[in-house]
Write a protein that binds this DNA or RNA. Sequence first.
DNA 1: TCACTGCAGTTTGTATACAGTATGCGAAAT
DNA 2: ATTTCGCATACTGTATACAAACTGCAGTGA
Lengths: 223, 223
Amino acid sequence: MATYKTRAQFVADDLRGRILGGEFKGGTQLRQDALARDYDVSRIPVREALLTLESEGLVEFHAHRGAFTTELSVAKIRELFDLRVLLETYVLRHAMNGLTDANLKKAEDILLKYDEALNSGGDIDNWSEYNFAFHQALYAPADLPETLSLISQLNTKSDRYIRMQLVYTQEIEKAEREHHGLLELARQRDADKACELLKTHIQEACEGIVALLDERAKQAEAP
Amino acid sequence: MATYKTRAQFVADDLRGRILGGEFKGGTQLRQDALARDYDVSRIPVREALLTLESEGLVEFHAHRGAFTTELSVAKIRELFDLRVLLETYVLRHAMNGLTDANLKKAEDILLKYDEALNSGGDIDNWSEYNFAFHQALYAPADLPETLSLISQLNTKSDRYIRMQLVYTQEIEKAEREHHGLLELARQRDADKACELLKTHIQEACEGIVALLDERAKQAEAP
DNA sequence: TCACTGCAGTTTGTATACAGTATGCGAAAT
DNA sequence: ATTTCGCATACTGTATACAAACTGCAGTGA
């Protein structure tokens, strides 16, 4: 299903990628007309795409002024990551019950595939997808689709900051080590330790991002 | 802000009310043309309204077949209410720290106002808003806007089932008693007991809804 | 100098018009 | 009798066109 894709969906998907990729910083205005020319469509599907992105929290509409990309404050970033800790440990714990070897195999496959990509080229662009796919594979056995959907939302909102951090630091290797650790603990069915590791995994990523933002703010102040 | 309201927003708000009010049961198709005539607008704002409702989980789009109202399974209802327990106890605990007398006063005002409305007429239509306003007043001191937004989402999704339950049972009085209890525990700054009460408050509402759905299913089977 | 008003230009929000696709029914083939 | 094909119909998804609203600037008045 969903073998067919409307133009609005195509624009939404591509534009999401561009926003998360950092092409539009700060609260820049997104002009419908310009985007329509970019994608060679009319403004209608562009508007629909922007509405979708609004519901995802990536842009905001101002009356008669159009859509602006959102900028998260440090407080909101912290809040998002705290929510991720709460929801993802909750789901992971539930997933540990019905965890089958097939589930573990799938998660491992994703992990190894990315290890390989990392060694050969180190392409960061796809990291978010790999990262998300690995986590989802671990969480899938919980069979909590609404919860996974919320987690997906939170990840989308925080994604561009995670990418920003990855570009400037060497966090990927650390994350990969932690992913392997998570998989090992899942194999042992040790829910407590796995949740603990997941918690620090998320929290440390958050601290890294906040530190980076602070540094940037200082540089901007005194160049 | 938001002093101006687009037609799309108006349609979305009204249509949300109609869906939550139970006007469209099951997975009924919502025809854009008919809705456009209903509201005396073109199909464009109707489409945008439907997209908004899709992001809220109230309708689903099928390719070239338009929007259908969603129907929640018992499993998903349970999942939603479990999430509410998780997030709302989390927020309530945080709110207990910075809780001021002004906050308590505001929550009490809402509660008393509704008690009054209940005694004089007992109008159920506004109950959802009152209920939500009371909970939000208690949660506000936590200063976690993203979290409150998620909670709001969950409430919207489960709202029509709550209403359904209220029509057929005498749950409102019970809920009101629990609200008073919650407020009292908040006054005493007893976070543990307050969270415990909130948990059962939500869980029992869930069980009531599930029981009602089961009953309906049986009636439909053997009329 | 500074605040306020009015006009031009730009951009959004919506109506209308058109093209494309899914569905259902009937006829033909097995 | 059952299945498959084709066509008519209805509805969606999108392009084009237009009206309303916001922004910025020039000019006036204090």
